[in-house]
């Protein structure tokens, strides 16, 4: 068995799975070669991640690391969450087979896209309400 107990636990009982209908931001990251795909949904308030969920098409490592990643970002500020990378996810999972560390790369990437989406939505809703951002 190439995976440790912790990875298997997150694979068989992933946390925070599923579509979030009322998300504040949604991000996707894919690996076009093999069709791996991770979608991250965010609920944000005052720059703090209040809620997060994911959907993953990929191997067991990709599913387990998506699950762990969502656990790690929950309750953190966006800024702190953006510093979490694949290495940190692998460490939190108490190690991954060397050739599987790459499989954890999509969740952080999808997360950055979700943050981007959140910022754009916020900006356009501010505009709609006649509020202009300082830098303009």
């Amino acid at each position: 068995m190439p995976y440790n107990r912790k990875v298997m636990e997150h694979f068989t009982q992933p946390r925070n799975v599923g579509e979030m209908k009322d998300a504040d931001g949604v991000g996707k990251a894919s690996n076009n070669v093999d069709g791996d795909l991770v979608v991250i949904y965010l609920k944000v308030k005052d720059e703090i991640i209040q809620g997060v969920s994911f959907q993953t098409f990929g191997c067991a490592a990709a599913i387990a690391s998506s699950s762990m990643f969502t656990e790690m970002v929950k309750g953190k500020s966006i800024e702190a969450a953006q510093r979490i990378d694949k290495q940190m996810v692998a460490e939190a999972l108490e190690g991954m087979p060397a050739n599987k560390v790459e499989c954890s790369i999509l969740a952080p990437e999808a997360f950055r896209q979700a943050v981007e989406d959140y910022r754009q939505r916020k900006e356009s809703s501010l505009r709609k309400n006649g509020v202009y951002l300082a830098k303009e």
Binding site: G58, A60, A62, N99, V101, C103
Partner: peptide, 24 residues
């Protein structure tokens, strides 16, 4: 994904295999 399928089947007590290669 086939690897996820094989591992999940193994957890349920079935030893199988796959021709899948993951994104790595």
């Amino acid at each position: 994904d086939g690897e996820a399928l094989v591992l999940n089947l193994d957890v349920k007590g079935f030893a199988t295999s796959t021709g899948s290669a993951c994104s790595a």
